[in-house]
Design a protein around this nucleic acid. Structure first.
Length: 429
RNA sequence: GGUGGGGUUCCCGAGUGGUCAAAGGGAUCAGACUGUAAAUCUGACGGCUCAGCCUUCGGAGGUUCAAAUCCUCCCCCCACCA
């Protein structure tokens, strides 16, 4: 089965430029394909996961994935940048971010022995000279055609307009593709569906300058069943960096997905067998939670390793109770089955240390919620308690001026909870 | 460069001298119901030493007992014209 089929069946494909030719090419070549990543942050987040998984599938099917970091474009930024993206970055930040991105990609893709590459377009973009660029590259672009690209059209109509810099990103991205095709024999570019115009521009440029046929694959924008772009939680973006977003929270993010998303996400974000995933479609109601646990476990295992996934699972069981996962369900998953993980210690629940004498009988409960970051201000904490959402060791906090007393202790620990799902453990010294 | 229209609490967006911490919607949070789901209903949604006080309406000054609302200057955005 070709990668393209795999990707299609798993729901990765939104559009392909030349299906048949691409199939032929993939069947007869060890292909190189690339996806661009923004170096705006030192970590990738779940929004990029579709791209990362697609590259991983490419590699698993014998091709060579290339991650291209947009260091050059990052150096330009965009003055209209209301979107947070496209801020001007220093070379130093870009290098740092690049290192972070590489570290994360390495969890998904094997970079050893040239099996995959991570490149930075700053390498060639910073060397460009305006006149030669216009003469050699600019000549191939028709403004008439460019403004028909969906990405520009909407911006042309919008109030914010479109800056010249942004308008040029298409040329730069097309140029990237051309360089990669020459230097690394890379003839496939993949990306989100919003990249279609840029990808096609690159394919055209390659044909015009070198006469070679290049290909493009775009992915659908992955939204949750409720129609929101995925990857946002109360903690902000879901980062892949364990420092920014703990494996426990990462696990929780997946467990909390919408029923309607489970099958789709299993296909996209795990490597489990499609035939097995199919059996999940029949599940209903509470049974679906078992599939969610597997989804969460697998996704966490892929991104953070088996050990962290295990810990996240254990902690979740401790907090929310265990559930029996039958041997037959998604048997390809290495999730512990049977009751073996029920002996729970909630090791990876977010925790912090405090000194006992500072806390016991001294600190109002409200402060505890603020100190642990569960509430962002005292007003917030007050509100939480007034509305009945504050708990200490499982007991609802009844009054906003309650102090942390000895009775709040559970051994040397205090488990506090905001709402149903946010826990924090305080270890007293 | 000219003319006109704007900048309001996380976002959209009402508000033109006191009754404004500021309508409405979205997002978010809590409670109920549940399956750590969705939908629904209820409530909350600047901060604090919380029935009171303090700080917010692009920025800096000013008028007034009183300003998001009026005046002056400045910054930024948009549209049309050049």
């Amino acid at each position: 089965m070709s990668v393209l089929t795999v990707l299609k069946e798993r729901g990765f494909v939104d559009a392909v430029t030349h299906t048949q030719e691409l199939e032929d090419y993939l069947a007869t070549n060890k292909a190189t394909c690339y996806i661009g990543f923004d170096p705006t942050a030192s970590s990738l987040h779940v929004g990029s996961l579709v791209c990362i998984m697609a590259l991983a599938h490419m590699q698993r099917n014998g091709h060579r994935p290339v991650g291209l970091v947009g260091g050059g474009t990052g150096l330009i930024g965009d003055p209209s940048g209301k979107t947070e993206l496209r801020q001007v970055l220093t070379q130093e930040t870009i290098n740092e971010n690049k290192a972070g991105i590489r570290k994360q990609l390495e969890r998904f893709i094997d970079f050893s022995e040239g099996k995959a590459l991570l490149l930075d377009n700053a390498k060639w973009l910073t060397k460009l000279e305006y006149i030669p660029f216009l003469r050699d590259i600019g000549r191939h672009f028709s403004v008439n055609r460019m403004i028909k690209a969906e990405s520009y059209k909407s911006r042309m109509d919008s109030e914010d307009g479109l800056t010249f810099i942004e308008f040029n990103y298409m040329l730069l991205q097309a140029y990237d593709f051309m360089v990669l095709s020459k230097d690394h024999d890379c003839l496939i570019q993949m990306g989100g569906s919003d990249q279609w115009g840029n990808i096609v521009a690159g394919i055209d440029l390659i044909r015009r300058t070198t006469g070679r046929q290049a290909f493009g694959i775009t992915f659908p924008l992955i939204t949750t069943a409720s129609g929101i772009k995925m990857g946002k939680t109360h903690k902000g973006a879901v980062w892949l960096d364990p420092e920014r977003f703990s494996p426990y929270d990462y696990y929780q993010f997946w467990v909390n997905c919408d029923d309607a998303d489970v099958v789709r996400f299993l296909k996209l974000f795990t490597f489990l067998d499609l035939s097995e995933i199919k059996t999940v479609e029949a599940l209903e109601g509470a049974d679906l939670n078992k599939a969610k646990a597997i989804l969460a476990y697998e996704a966490t295992r892929i991104a953070h390793g088996a050990e962290e996934a295990q810990k996240a699972l254990t902690a979740s069981v401790a907090m929310f109770g265990s559930l029996e996962i039958p041997q037959s369900l998604l048997s390809g998953s290495s999730i512990p089955r049977g009751g073996q993980h029920t002996a729970a210690n909630a090791e990876s629940v977010p925790s912090s240390e405090m000194s006992a004498e500072q806390v016991i009988d001294k600190m109002p409960v409200i402060d505890l919620f603020v100190e642990t970051g569960l509430c962002r201000s005292k007003s917030d904490a007050r509100r939480l308690i007034q509305q009945g959402g504050g708990y200490i060791n499982g007991n609802r906090v009844e009054s906003i001026d309650q102090m942390v007393g000895k009775d709040s202790l559970d051994g040397a620990e205090i488990l506090i909870r905001a709402g149903k799902k946010k826990y924090h453990k305080i270890i007293l010294k």
